[in-house]
Design a protein around this nucleic acid. Structure first.
Lengths: 229, 229
DNA sequence: GCCTATTAAAATATCGATATTTTTAACTGT
DNA sequence: ACAGTTAAAAATATCGATATTTTAATAGGC
C-alpha cells in the first residue's frame, strides 16, 4: 500500500470501515479490538481516532474512549439539506469558471462512472467501485469552483452523506435511473448552464436523502417490531 | 482547568496558541519543543496535533511532522466569503425559529460583550476577553437555527476567521464602531427581521475580511521591503 | 428484594525506550 | 569549488509497560 506510516494505514482502514457501515453507528471502539482487527499497535490507532473525531466520524469523550458517530433520520435530513446547499453553490461557481481541462475531467469521469452504471450484473465489488467513481465524478464537476474551503466542506458533507447513501443503495439502483441523472448533470455543466445544473443536483441530492430516510425508517420500524414481538 | 485528560489540555493550549498567532503560520511544530512548552508528554501532544489537523489548523505529513497551517490573502478572502454565506443562512433559519430562551441568550450575550466594547481603556487582557464574548454573541444569534451541521460548519469558519481577525483587530477597534454593528444585529434579530440581519452580518463579515486583507497586505509589503533593503 | 459500598476487572491514558526515517554535516574524488 | 556519497545527528513513529479511571461484579445493610 501507499501508506507512509501505520497511523495513515489505521486512518484509512478505520475510515473505510466506518463509512461503509462495517463498523456500525454507536459501536464502542475499543483499542484492543481494533488492534487485533488491523494488526496494528495502539498508538497509531489512537492517533487515527483522534483525526477521525475532527471529521465527526467518531465521537470522543475524555477517559471514556470513542464510538462510531451515531446516525439518525434527523441527521440524514440535516446533512442532505446542507449538502444540497453547498453542492449548488459550488456548481454555480465552477461551471462558469471551468476551462478545457475541467471539461476533459468531467467527461472522462462521467464515462468511467457510466461504464459501471450501465453494467447489467452489478455485484458487491461493483458497488465499492461505483462509490469511488461516483465520488470522482461529483468532485470533478465542482473542482473548478476556485474556493478551497467550499471544496473542503463539500467533501466533508459528501463523505457523511455517503455513509447514509450506502444504506439505501441496493434499492436505489433498482428504482432510480441514476445514470440518467448523472448524464443530464454533465450535459448542463458542459453547456455552461449553471442554473439547470443546480436544479438537477438539488433533485439528485433530495432523492438520495429521501431514499436514505425511507431505508432508515424501515430499519427503525423493524427494530420496533422486533422489540414488540 | 476542566481538562479531563492531558490530550485535551494539549489540544486546548495548542489551539489557543495557533488561533491567537503565538505560534506563527508555517512554523514547524516539533514534538520536543511542544513537550517543553507545555510540560506534557509526547503522546498527548501527538494526539492533539492529529485532531487539529482534522480541523485544518495544522498540516500533517507522514514521517515529516507538522506545521501550523499557512495563512494567505487568498485564504482570507476564501474564508471570509464562505463565512458570509454560512452566517447568513444560519441567521435566516435561526431568527424565525428562535424562542424566548433564545432571545434571552442573545440579549445577555450582547450586554456582556457591550460592557467590554464600551470600556475606554482596552488592554491586552481585554482583547482576549473580547474574543470570547464576541464568539458567544455570534454563537447565540444562530443557535436556534435547528441544523447541527450548519452550526458546526459555521463554528469551523468562525474559528478560522478568528485567526485572521486577530491580525487586524488593534486597528479595527479604532476605525470601526463594532459595538454599533453588534447592536443593530441584535435589534434586527429581536425584531425578527431576518433579511435585515442578513444584510448586517454580510457587511460585518466583509468589513472584517477587508481589514484582515489590508493588514496582511501591509505585512507582505513590509516583508518585501525588508528583503529589498 | 433493592440500594449502596467495596472490590475486581477492563479499558483508557500516558510515559519511557527503541526503531525508523529524514535532515544535516562532513568527506571524497574530480 | 562542486556534485555525489556516506556518516552522524535529529526528529518522527511505534512499541511495551505502567498508572489512572471507568465499568462490572459482588457483598452487605435496610
Amino acid at each position: 500500500m501507499s501508506d507512509k506510516t501505520n497511523t495513515e494505514k489505521a486512518y484509512r482502514l478505520l475510515r473505510e470501515d466506518i463509512v461503509s457501515g462495517r463498523l456500525a453507528p454507536d459501536l464502542k471502539l475499543k483499542i484492543e479490538m481494533l488492534r487485533q482487527r488491523y494488526s496494528l499497535g495502539a498508538s497509531p490507532i489512537r492517533e487515527a481516532l483522534a483525526r477521525l473525531s475532527g471529521e465527526h466520524l467518531v465521537t470522543l469523550e475524555g477517559q471514556r474512549g470513542c464510538q462510531v458517530a451515531p446516525m439518525s433520520i434527523n441527521d440524514a435530513h440535516d446533512i442532505g439539506r446542507m449538502r444540497k446547499m453547498i453542492e449548488a453553490e459550488a456548481l454555480r461557481l465552477a461551471i462558469p469558471a471551468g476551462n478545457q481541462s475541467w471539461e476533459d475531467t468531467v467527461i472522462t469521469s462521467f464515462h468511467r462512472l457510466e461504464r459501471v452504471e450501465r453494467r447489467s450484473d452489478q455485484g458487491v465489488d461493483d458497488l465499492a467501485e461505483w462509490e469511488i467513481l461516483n465520488g470522482r465524478f461529483h468532485q470533478a464537476l465542482v473542482s473548478a469552483c476556485g474556493s478551497p474551503w467550499l471544496l473542503r466542506i463539500r467533501s466533508l458533507l459528501f463523505d457523511q452523506h455517503e455513509r447514509y447513501r450506502r444504506l439505501s443503495r441496493m434499492r436505489t439502483v433498482l428504482t432510480r435511473d441514476i445514470n440518467e441523472e448523472h448524464r443530464r448533470l454533465m450535459e448542463a455543466a458542459l453547456d455552461r448552464d449553471a442554473e439547470e445544473a443546480v436544479k438537477i443536483i438539488e433533485v439528485h441530492v433530495e432523492r438520495t436523502t429521501d431514499a436514505v430516510v425511507d431505508a432508515l425508517q424501515q430499519n427503525s420500524d423493524m427494530a420496533v417490531s422486533l422489540v414488540a414481538s
